[in-house]
């Protein structure tokens, strides 16, 4: 049979390896907040601001940026949802309004959530939403149709090579998320 010192050596090594295993499991979860921080810093994944911010910058009237609106309705969300205009030409630093219209296609009350994403990635942090229906979940009565406002500024620090920004919204039924 093995001697005492060897058993101790085995036990100590197993324990330290188990620490690695538990640490690795924890690291998997730690990646979640790390990823959020990383995305907020870099705009990775098209992350844009999801809370209102105030911006006061002088508009750059010489520069035209095309802003395109793309809307998607999640396959589980019983809604119609579209931008009133497909695109608009904007000057960096100037405030603009856009309107989106959504309709609850069911006879029941629904709560919806719009999730934004901006492309290209380099533009994500420079597309600043002042006020947006995507900041909060939106309640719809049965069959209600409603216009929803978006107020935004394109930051004049936008890299020179970007001349088109695409803002994409996906419309979700929040109930389908909670009780999936």
């Amino acid at each position: 049979m093995s001697s005492e010192p060897k058993n101790n050596a085995n036990r100590n090594l197993v324990l330290s390896l188990l620490v690695v295993v538990v640490g690795a499991f924890g690291f998997g979860y730690l990646l979640v907040p790390l990823y959020d921080v990383f995305c907020e810093i870099t705009g990775f994944g098209g992350r844009t601001n999801t809370e209102a911010v105030a911006v006061t910058e002088a508009p750059d009237l010489d520069r035209d940026i095309r802003v395109e609106f793309v809307t998607t309705v999640n396959s589980y969300a019983p809604f119609e949802f579209a931008a009133d205009a497909d695109s608009m030409i904007v000057h960096p630093g100037q405030m603009y309004f856009a309107t989106f219209t959504a309709k609850n296609m069911t006879g029941e009350d629904k709560v919806a959530m719009a999730v934004p994403s901006v492309a290209p990635v380099a533009a994500a942090e420079h597309f600043v939403k002042i006020e947006c229906f995507c900041f909060n979940s939106q309640s719809f009565a049965a069959s209600e149709e409603r216009a929803m406002p978006l107020q935004f500024i394109v930051d004049p620090d936008l890299p020179d090579y970007v001349d088109t920004i695409t803002l994409q919204y996906t419309f979700f039924d929040t109930a389908r998320v909670a009780s999936n």
Partner: peptide
């Protein structure tokens, strides 16, 4: 031992999401 627990974490997140 460094990466199998990470997979376990990822699929556990799928499970709790569902």
């Amino acid at each position: 031992i460094a990466v199998m627990p990470v997979l376990a974490g990822a699929v556990t997140m799928l499970l709790t999401d569902q």
